[in-house]
Design a protein around this nucleic acid. Sequence first.
DNA 1: CGGTATCCTGAAAGATACTG
DNA 2: CAGTATCTTTCAGGATACCG
Lengths: 151, 151
Amino acid sequence: MTQHESDQPTCTMHRALNVVGEKWTFVVLRDVFNGIVRFDDLQEHTGIARPVLAKRLATLVEEGLLEQVPYRVEGQRTRSQYQLTPKGRDLYPVLITLRQWGDRYLSDASTPTKINRHKGCGSPVHAVFQCESGHIIDQMEEIEAMTIVGV
Amino acid sequence: MTQHESDQPTCTMHRALNVVGEKWTFVVLRDVFNGIVRFDDLQEHTGIARPVLAKRLATLVEEGLLEQVPYRVEGQRTRSQYQLTPKGRDLYPVLITLRQWGDRYLSDASTPTKINRHKGCGSPVHAVFQCESGHIIDQMEEIEAMTIVGV
DNA sequence: CGGTATCCTGAAAGATACTG
DNA sequence: CAGTATCTTTCAGGATACCG
């Protein structure tokens, strides 16, 4: 059964992958999160071929994860940069959990470790689950999945 | 600058994507998490072409995220199934955060919402971050990133 | 049931060069 | 600086058929 553009998957995770599941998407987003927001800077830092980067950025703008905004430094000409929208910013947890998994299983002497700290208190953070009753869950065995049909 | 197999990216998130960043990987993992663990079941449920599924599963086994284990129901012949290793299980937070993002931004009337509940208390859970001092962080603005060189 | 073997296609990615 | 235009290549993915 071939997947046509029209029949979207009903699984929202699958849909998410159709938006951000391409090879370079998260690498680009990572850099934007890190403050690299201009085309040439992104190109140089990621090493992606220029046409590919252009297409990826266009997709991210189309999908509403990035916004292209012009800016101007006094006395220089107008330039443009990419900014995260709330929709884009909300992917941060995915990025973090992905990186934490990589840190745990794929790091070696050559990989600089990125630590995320709680501003103010300064302690390293990691992903856990919290239920609405307030319990913290760090064993996924304590979680059960359930499908709600009809939204 | 072309990427050869030998020169891995130093970013662990990027490395993670090289393991699980292919189109169908998370869809397969999702099903395995949901208890669909046999080849034909996976094939039918995902709709992936058989050779592709075979390759994806082989990769996941190679990379140590899945294990192929034989099992036998009394009186029937031996069958085989795929089981998550701890390394594979630890991708759960990535799956959940990805799905939560999809739920928020890509759902519509046709998408069944998957709710994860805390066993016992029954309340829905969502991914948050916790720092080692115990604070719960649900605003990513409260998180700052920092690079530690030299592991 | 759990895959392989074969063959094919298209889309994504890459290299290079050019433009406003 | 921020892209396009062209062209080429690679390969993940798909269709179909077959096998122990």
